[in-house]
Design a protein around this nucleic acid. Sequence first.
DNA 1: TTTCGATGGTTACAAATGAAACCAGTTTGG
DNA 2: CCAAACTGGTTTCATTTGTAACCATCGAAA
Lengths: 147, 147
Amino acid sequence: MEPDILELESFLPYRLYRLADTVSREFSRIYKERHGLTRPEWRTLSGLGERGTMTATELGEQSAMHKAKVSRAVAELERRRWLTRTADENDRRVEHLALTRAGLAAYREMVPLAKAFEGELLARLSVEERVAIVNGVAALERALSCS
Amino acid sequence: MEPDILELESFLPYRLYRLADTVSREFSRIYKERHGLTRPEWRTLSGLGERGTMTATELGEQSAMHKAKVSRAVAELERRRWLTRTADENDRRVEHLALTRAGLAAYREMVPLAKAFEGELLARLSVEERVAIVNGVAALERALSCS
DNA sequence: TTTCGATGGTTACAAATGAAACCAGTTTGG
DNA sequence: CCAAACTGGTTTCATTTGTAACCATCGAAA
């Protein structure tokens, strides 16, 4: 192990990135092919489907997206009539976002697909490996306080 | 646990992506601030530093980048005079890439920083957590045959 | 109240990306 | 020998992204 050489193959940041990229790319095929959604759009749909009503800021926090990304995704979903904005009564800067019936339908359709995807991914691992990845990810999230 | 709701917070693809994104973003500060490199450029530098001489195709395979990305990164590093191309004698489509003295110097400067970054990241975990993340990532790589 | 700093959200602009078309050059099969 | 079919690598174009500036509104302090 030469000290002045970096083995990319075993460098954790690189491995994590490649792994996440592969998984994310596979998964994105599902919402891309099915509904032509981008990742920010999918996350927005998924956030609102899960929580019901959120503001753009909350959405950004929940799904780790910059507010510009959120803004664009919201605009697109609104254009599709998948969500509506309701002005806040006390603070006119804030809008409360919620899925329309159509948006909810799309969400409900996606949920089983997402769960199946995750299930199939984990099914390829042994029990110990599943425990390892889940605990390992949780530990790193804690260490980086990104969760 | 409602069956028709997806908890983004515990959805593995999302968590992996967010984690990798956070780590990668932190790490990129190092090569961005120090040398103004993009991620593809850093990977190219790092690949050539590790292996010595590679073709663009090999670089793409080693560092999981599309050939267009590789092409652009190589062009930029060449512009900086950090690498040179040498034509292959048998196949005139192929070019062998290698770092110049300046490129190698930059690489040698980056290696300890990269190792320190990874070290500090792992240092925030317990021994068991380190084992878990490394094994978990390895298991997923195997499962997705992305390594 | 007026002013000033923070905050929710949008937008403009530059840079990064992905996909596909493209240009050599090489191999294969007739 | 020649016409596909293929491969290494580049470029073009449309889309996505990040950053920062921006607009409107709000809250606090003078």
